[in-house]
Structures are given as structure tokens and as C-alpha cells.
Design a protein around this nucleic acid. Structure first.
Length: 457
DNA sequence: TGCTGCGGGTACG
DNA sequence: CGTACCCGCAGCA
């Protein structure tokens, strides 16, 4: 291992997979891996990971996202594409303020049946919000086994809320079965609420998905699960988009095999979950953003970051049309439909208008009287320099604004793709918290290196 | 019953 | 040719 690689080892932002320049289609992939990424359940963005062939989750090609098999006529490479998320067509808020975000059934027939069901909260129809995060097409994941490693590559940025994780869906199913023979209310309720709070807090944590912050949930997850029957967990999850910002891995029982194996190194998960977000056009910019003088960890003090921040604050568009992200497609050739999406302020002429002007109707604010739940996403893509061939180094700036009533997350992502290091940086105002949220006693200062009050904006 | 992977096939650019 | 997507099938839980 070279000196440079050794140095990279200390960089918790960089995953093993991203240290190497490879593509899933390469005839020869990196060999003799001495180190593997720990499994990432919620990958997002153009990322690569290299898992150990022993990793059960990698072997199963698991993902938190609902990924279905896609035939790419290549038996070496398993390709999966994202199905999106099933939501209430009214976007109603559930009693606890969350929104229904079901995991689409993988099987086509099962999914059709699923969509015929009604929202458990308001009896409205359910709707499948498809994923269009990869140049208008669903995000795709590629899996390839090679030697002692399982190579994972993801293309696209999920442009929809997270569905339930697979284990959550399974747990709910078994729960529904069991409820037939058991009373509807159990004393577990309080613990359930505690866990929901946990999810709410941490699913809002922005993309410092690094490692340094992953100790707590791993310690916490099993502890919680030991007292909360996972099958009784709430079936609906995080209010809409704040879910995009979990730094933590879900404490799903299947999720962290390393822990149970006593893998010390996994206590601090190496890879981050670098994500970028491509906003669908049509947002009304609320103009909250400035360049805060947030502290940065050394890992995040990448000189490349600063200009991005500067540009982000100066790239405030005056209209609702934020179509500056047209070059997301690695090939630079979005399909015609996508071009239309970029031009249109109502990108989804069909029923996919959740991100359009009527978004607040679909996703009403959780707090009565608060501003409509407008989101703002600005994406700027700056071509800096080619890294190899036609690959380009891209700086992506993504800003999101949220009403004060919800978790406000702002992220600045720096992405080098497809061959390089991904760095991500994020900051957010102090999220709303309940007293139970940090009852685990974990110190999240490392999780929230940059805490801002909403007024600061 | 649903998940998963495979593979034949079509459509499109 | 690459990509997306549809379909059916088989194995499995």
C-alpha cells in the first residue's frame, strides 16, 4: 500500500471503494483488497463500495431502497433499479406527523396489489412515486462478485423519500399477521415512540455520513431492538424529505453483521454515504442560505469545498426554475423526457407533481400556520477538470430549505465521479428534538459539528 | 405470497 | 451497441 493510500486510510470520508478508480464494467477490478467497506444500506449518489465477499448483506445485494432486478444481459453484473416509494396520494400527515412512505413491492403483481390499497390514515389511494434520480431514469445499483470482494456501484441520486427499509417492511408484515391474535395495544408503545424519535432525529442528520458518527447508532440499535420488538415498529416513517439526510445507518437487525462478528474496525464505519441531491426543477427559492462560518473537521476542510459554498450562496435564482443541474448525467445526455423536465416548472405532467408548485398541497407543513413546506434545492455543477478520459470532476452544491417546523438541512456536496474521492459536507440548524431523542446518552457533537439556529439564516 | 435472480424478448437512440 | 423495461420462470422462505 502506498503512502498516499495509507494517508487515505485515515480519511473517514473516503470509502474503500472510492479510493480506487474502477467501474463496474471494467474487465479488471481492484484486486487483493486489504480492506473492505462496511455495508451501506442507504447508498445514494454516484458511489462505489467494495465489500467483503463474506458480507451477508452484500451477498444478498441488499439495499434500503426498494431495488428490483433489472436484466442487463450480463451475468457477471447484477443490475438493480430503484422502484421509488409508495406514498399517500393526498400526502396526508399521519397522527404522529410522519408521512406514509411504504416500500414498493418488488414483484410487479404484488406492487399492483399494493397500489390498490388505501392509505391507512386518510383512506386515500396510494401512489407510487417513481425514482427518476438517474437522468430521469431510476437510480441503478450494480453488483459484481470478483474474487474475495463484492463490488458495488450506484448511479443516480434518489429523488424521493426513503421507503421503509426491507426489514421494516418484513417486520410490519409479520406484525400484521401476529396482531390478528393479539390485542392492539401493548405497553411497548412508549418504547416504540422512543425509537421513532430516534429515527426522526437521526434520519435528519445530514450527510456527514461518516463513520465518526456511526458508533452511537450501532451501540444503540441493538440495545433498542432488544427492548422493542422490531415487528411492532411503526410502519410509517419520517416526514417526507428530511429522510434524505440520515448519516446513521438504520439499526436494522440485519444491517450490521460486523458488530455481531466483533469487528472492531466497524465500530467506526469507514465509508461515508456521500450523496448528492438533484432537485427537480420548479422549486420556489426561499433564499435562506448564506455561507455560514461553520466549523469544519479536518476531513472536511477540503479546499475544494470553500468555493462551492461561495458559489452556492451567490447562485440564488430569482425564479422558481432551477434547472442548473442539467449535467448530472454522466453521459451528459439526458433523455428527451428529462430535458423537458428540466425546462418545465411542473416537471411531471402526469401525476408526479410532488415537487412542483403544488408540492405544499401534497406535503402540507407539519405545523399548522407555518410556511408551506417548500423545499429549495439548488444544484450547481461546475466542470473543473477531467480526471480520466471523459470523466469530469464535478462540484455539486445542493441547498435545501425547510420550514422552521421541520428539520432544516443544508448540504454541500462535493463529488468527483466516477473515479475519485467523494467528499461531503453538510450543516443544519438544530433540529427539533424531543427529550427522548438523546436518551441514549450518546454524544452527538461529532454528528452535529455545525449546529445552527434557524434564525441564523 | 412475495422476494430474488435469471434470461428471453422488445424498444429506443 | 448500450440501456431501459417487460415478461415469465424457478428457487426459496
Amino acid at each position: 500500500m502506498s503512502r498516499a493510500e495509507e494517508r487515505e486510510d485515515s480519511d473517514c470520508v473516503c470509502s474503500v471503494g472510492m479510493k480506487f478508480t474502477w467501474d463496474i464494467n471494467d474487465p479488471k477490478l481492484p484486486q487483493d483488497m486489504k480492506q473492505f467497506d462496511s455495508f451501506q444500506e442507504w447508498t445514494d449518489g454516484y458511489v462505489r463500495f467494495i465489500y467483503s465477499a463474506e458480507d451477508k448483506n452484500a451477498q444478498r445485494h441488499l439495499s434500503g431502497w426498494a431495488m428490483r432486478n433489472t436484466n442487463n444481459h450480463n451475468c457477471q453484473i447484477l443490475k438493480k433499479s430503484c422502484l421509488g416509494v409508495v406514498i399517500c396520494s393526498r400526502g396526508c400527515s399521519l397522527p404522529d406527523g410522519s408521512r406514509l412512505q411504504l416500500r414498493p413491492a418488488i414483484c410487479d403483481k404484488a406492487r399492483q396489489k399494493q397500489q390498490k390499497k388505501l392509505c391507512p390514515s386518510c383512506n386515500a389511494t396510494l401512489e407510487l412515486l417513481p425514482c427518476r434520480g438517474h437522468s430521469g431514469y431510476p437510480v441503478t445499483n450494480f453488483w459484481r462478485v470478483d474474487g474475495k470482494a463484492i463490488f458495488f456501484q450506484a448511479k443516480g441520486v434518489h429523488d424521493h423519500p426513503r421507503p421503509e427499509s426491507k426489514s421494516e417492511t418484513e417486520a410490519r408484515r409479520s406484525s400484521v399477521k401476529r396482531r390478528v391474535n393479539s390485542p392492539p395495544f401493548t405497553p411497548k408503545r412508549r418504547l416504540i415512540e422512543t425509537q421513532v424519535s430516534y429515527r426522526r432525529t437521526h434520519s435528519s442528520v445530514p450527510g456527514l455520513g461518516c463513520s465518526c458518527v456511526c458508533v452511537a447508532p450501532q451501540a444503540l440499535g441493538p440495545a433498542l431492538l432488544s427492548c422493542v420488538d422490531s415487528s411492532d415498529r411503526i410502519s410509517f416513517i419520517e416526514p417526507s424529505f428530511p429522510q434524505h439526510y440520515p448519516a446513521f445507518q438504520s439499526p436494522e437487525p440485519y444491517y450490521n453483521p460486523h458488530n455481531s462478528l466483533g469487528d472492531v474496525s466497524s465500530g467506526i464505519q469507514k465509508p461515508s454515504n456521500p450523496r448528492l441531491y438533484m432537485g427537480r426543477p420548479g422549486y420556489e427559492f426561499q433564499g435562506y442560505l448564506t455561507s455560514p462560518s461553520y466549523p469544519m473537521t479536518s476531513d472536511l476542510c477540503d479546499p475544494r469545498v470553500a468555493p462551492v459554498l461561495g458559489s452556492s450562496s451567490s447562485s440564488t435564482p430569482s425564479s422558481g426554475s432551477l434547472s442548473t443541474s442539467s449535467s448530472f448525467d454522466p453521459q451528459g445526455k439526458p433523455p428527451a423526457g428529462w430535458k423537458d423536465l428540466l425546462k418545465s416548472s411542473t416537471p411531471y405532467g402526469d401525476n408526479h407533481h410532488y415537487y412542483g408548485a403544488d408540492y405544499p398541497c401534497r406535503y402540507p407543513s407539519n405545523a399548522p400556520g407555518s410556511p408551506a413546506a417548500l423545499q429549495t434545492i439548488i444544484t450547481t455543477t461546475t466542470k473543473v477538470s477531467p480526471t480520466r478520459g471523459s470523466d469530469t470532476l464535478r462540484f455539486i452544491t445542493v441547498l435545501k430549505s425547510w420550514p422552521a417546523s421541520s428539520s432544516y438541512s443544508t448540504e454541500v456536496k462535493v463529488m468527483e465521479e466516477p473515479g475519485g474521492v467523494i467528499k461531503s459536507l453538510s450543516f443544519q440548524p438544530e433540529p427539533l428534538q424531543t427529550k427522548t431523542e438523546r436518551a441514549d446518552g450518546c454524544d452527538y457533537r461529532y454528528t452535529y459539528p455545525n449546529t445552527y439556529r434557524y434564525e441564523d439564516y
